[in-house]
Design a protein around this nucleic acid. Structure first.
Lengths: 211, 211
DNA sequence: TCGGACACGTGACTC
DNA sequence: TGAGTCACGTGTCCG
């Protein structure tokens, strides 16, 4: 009796352990298909490669300034639209943010500053941005922009040439961009023409057909 | 004698196995520090999370069109400059590429096409790009640009609204962008003014001081 | 008491 | 042969 019990217990125990191993090895196999250069390596090397890849990919995305997706519990990342929305989409409210970029010390000691502006879109905005940026002692080394529904979001990476008085440069940058942002909403040409129909041409966003 | 041998062999065997387990668990621990939401989960769940993260990060980088870094053996990714160069930098030669974007089927069945153009920079190029794109039945949902040394590289993501005659749209897009690209090099205003000194204002790149 | 998760030592296999 | 890796069953701890 007791012996039969013990045998049955042992059996279920080993079976449970087998299931556990199967789960682990299954994930390992999946990982192997996902990673490159991992066709014939052993388990430990596979995990080392996984660590390396995760580090590299995280670095890439953070350098690009992409929002980390793991911040919430939404697992629905299957369509392009969702990714775009999470990555960089103009929001309904005007926004102006300036921050130092991660790992931004350049080889020659200059600093990369990231600025983002979100406001109403309009055709003159590129020229205005150019004018605004010309007042700042920094060089735009990268830009991204996206528009939807008549609003524009623009990300700018500025290489700050002068190491001295960083704070002053940031203040200048902020106020210069703020002018652009506010003009989009409160500027005269906007107040007038918007009521005539939204037919101004745009570089980005909106059906291009009627331009 | 033989028995002592056998015991010694068993000992080294179990020690080797112990080392192996230690290596594996070490990588697992590293992975645990790298991944979020993995403070108190078991080994299998950790690996599942790793799989999820790798998939997500790969998707993010591929959507952004970043070059996969694993393609070569250069491990020196420590500075911003290197990353930028690998990601997107204007090259010396004019380039025009059009391709379908990975995972680009949008929820409403439209297609995302990625176009990249690299040519000489000039202030009118934004306006010219806008004009060129207005001739194509597609909507620019995202753009990235970067300039250095008087050259510009521009990445465009276009959402193709019409499913029919895709190829025709791509041909139109290509020829429209080619006009912009070639005008930068061979256009009249370039031929003339370049010799007068390169003082034309630029939105991106180049010292902004003298604008 | 069960069931899950882990580390351990061992037999089998490969180079 | 010897050193490495793997799957397995088992002992142990925890909720």
């Amino acid at each position: 009796m007791a012996e039969a019990k013990a045998i049955a217990a042992n059996k279920s125990h080993s079976e449970a352990e087998r299931r556990r191993r199967k789960r682990i090895n299954g994930h390992l196999a999946t990982l192997r298909t996902l990673l490159p250069n991992t066709i014939k390596t052993d388990k430990a090397s596979l995990l080392a490669e996984a660590v390396r890849s995760v580090r590299e990919l995280k670095k890439t995305t953070s350098e690009l300034g992409a929002t980390t997706m793991s911040d919430d519990d939404n697992d629905n990342y299957d369509d392009h639209t969702t990714l775009m929305k999470k990555f960089m989409f103009p929001s309904e409210s005007d926004e102006l943010n300036i921050s130092y970029c991660n790992n931004s010390m350049d080889s020659d000691g200059t600093l990369i500053v990231k600025a983002s502006i979100c406001c109403e879109d309009r055709p003159e905005i590129m020229m205005e941005l150019r004018n605004a940026l010309s007042t700042v002692q920094g060089k735009v080394v990268r830009a991204e922009m996206s528009t939807v529904g008549g609003r524009i979001k623009c990300l700018l990476w500025l290489q700050m040439l002068e190491n001295g008085c960083k704070e002053g440069l940031l203040v200048q940058l902020r106020s210069a961009l703020k002018v652009v942002m506010d003009k989009a909403t409160f500027g005269p040409q906007n107040m007038g023409q918007d009521l005539l129909g939204n037919k101004r041409p745009r570089l980005l966003g909106g059906p291009m057909n009627y331009v």
